[in-house]
Computed example of a mutant assay.
Amino acid sequence: MKYRSAFDIIGPVMIGPSSSHTAGAARIGRVARTLFERQPKKVVISFYGSFAKTYKGHGTDLAIVAGLLDFDTFDERIPNSLTIAEELGMEVIFQTEEAVPDHPNTVKINIYDDKNEMEVVGISIGGGTIEITEINSFKLKLSGDPAILVMHQDRFGIISCVTAVLSKYEINIGHMEVARKEKGEMAIMVIEVDQKIEDDVIEELRGLSYVSRVIRMVE
């Protein structure tokens, strides 16, 4: 992992005792909320490794739920996030897993509302820095930096159409990867960029053939 500044190591401005177990957890929850694009009705939060052993003492549970409520790492409501979630009608279930993860600070979040569901796996790698490693079983790498996710059918030319739109608006790509489960089926592009992505760019991408969803990440 390449750090961009000393603040990636020291950690962010935050509520909580640990940049990896609290601030990082809040960021994972907030990215999951962004990916789901709405307030969940129910979440099942599964902790692995170090998270599973220490989540109560480090406030990881409070932080994940705070992120799912769209609270930032420094939001003073984080200690009361479980109460706030209950007041908003969001059911929260915590569970610990015995499986040994690739990274010790791993959480899987299953998110539901009346019609939709999503599964997000994230890791907290220190200093409040995170990576999303799976979305609905698609393996990927998403850091939470300015980025877009493009969900599309696996068809010839889709990648070039997407990058052509970004080039048109002079948006520089810092990192990009494509994941698919089977040839010709659903695929996901993860594109991290160097600048803010405006609404007109998102709308043009959504209008491309075979593109089903375009999600702009929290910046």
Rank of each mutant, 00 (worst) to 15 (best):
N80T: 09
T60E: 02
D70C: 15
A66P: 00
K56Y: 06
L82S: 01
L88D: 06
A52D: 01
G67C: 04
K56V: 15
F51W: 01
A52T: 03
A85S: 07
E86Y: 12
I78K: 02
I78M: 08
T83A: 14
Y55M: 12
A63P: 04
P79T: 12
G59M: 06
T60I: 05
A85G: 08
D72G: 13
Y48R: 02
D70K: 10
S50K: 08
G57L: 09
R77I: 07
G67Q: 05
D61W: 09
D75C: 12
E76F: 13
D72C: 08
I78Q: 04
F47H: 08
S46L: 01
A52E: 02
I64M: 09
N80V: 02
T54I: 14
L82I: 10
G59Q: 04
L68T: 06
S81K: 04
D72P: 06
L88T: 11
S50Y: 03
I45K: 02
V65H: 04
A66G: 13
L69A: 03
F74W: 15
F74H: 14
F71C: 01
R77D: 10
T54L: 15
L69R: 01
D75L: 11
R77P: 07
V65K: 03
L62E: 12
E76S: 15
T83G: 08
G57P: 03
E86T: 12
Y55P: 01
F74R: 11
F47Q: 06
D75E: 09
D70A: 14
A66N: 01
L69S: 01
T60R: 00
F47S: 06
T60Y: 00
E76P: 08
A85E: 02
F47N: 11
D72T: 13
A66Q: 01
E87R: 10
I84P: 07
L68D: 03
Y55G: 01
F51K: 01
F71I: 10
A63M: 08
H58S: 12
K53S: 13
G57Q: 11
S46A: 10
L62Q: 14
G49D: 02
L69Q: 00
D61H: 14
F74V: 04
V65D: 05
S46G: 03
P79L: 08
D75H: 13
Y55I: 05
G49N: 03
I84V: 15
V65T: 12
V65R: 03
F51V: 03
I78C: 02
I64A: 05
F47A: 10
